[in-house]
């Protein structure tokens, strides 16, 4: 039963993930909290774990599945997160290529950017609120944001490792 719930949740998010999976993070957080699978800070921590692994950021779905229902949950959540969108991509890829000069395609393409921007900023605000329960954590977030923005070539793993270390030193 719980596997079905996971499958339906992530299959829906798969088709709603405009501009990538990060746009759905607020909806994901809302769903896992409503199901009492985890708290907001736990979700933020799990997202941190997903970001520490190489690979696409849809891996947060794998981790939620694992948390809720072990390895079968991880498998179902992963397949549900990539299945519907991959099927759609498979279906329209050739057709999209054929219309690469068309005006309507350029319109759709430029229309998606501001929507994605708004959804991603929403995702960031939800995660920041979940992760930063006091000023010290907020300071870590701000520092990582500034360094990542000013030094875009720096490997993000260094920033995540630094943030983890500051967490251990500052709070233990």
């Amino acid at each position: 039963m719980i596997l079905l719930t996971l499958a339906l949740l992530f299959a829906e998010l798969s088709l709603l993930a405009i501009g990538g999976v990060a746009s759905t993070l607020p909806a994901m957080a809302r769903a896992v909290i409503a199901h009492h699978w985890m708290t907001a800070p736990q979700f933020a921590a799990l997202f941190g774990v997903a970001q520490s692994s190489p690979g696409p950021n849809m891996l947060i779905a794998t981790l939620i599945g694992l948390h809720v229902a072990g390895l079968p949950g991880a498998a179902i959540a992963t397949i549900a997160m990539i299945g519907p969108s991959s099927t759609l991509t498979y279906a329209v890829a050739g057709w999209w290529h054929r219309f690469r000069e068309a005006r309507w395609r350029r319109i759709l393409q430029s229309a998606i950017t501001p929507v994605t921007g708004g959804l991603l900023l929403a995702a960031a605000s939800v995660l920041l609120r979940a992760a930063d329960h006091d000023w010290r954590e907020a300071l870590i977030s701000v520092a990582v944001f500034l360094v990542a923005t000013l030094r875009p070539k720096l490997h993000p793993l260094w920033l995540l490792a630094g943030a983890t270390l500051v967490g251990i030193l500052g709070f233990a």
Partner: peptide
């Protein structure tokens, strides 16, 4: 505590990505 720092860092990274894309 390490995970709390990690979560704070990861959300800072997402903010940087969001700002870049927006």
């Amino acid at each position: 505590h390490g995970l709390e720092g990690l979560a704070a860092g990861a959300s800072g990274l997402i903010l940087a990505t969001a700002v870049k894309i927006a």
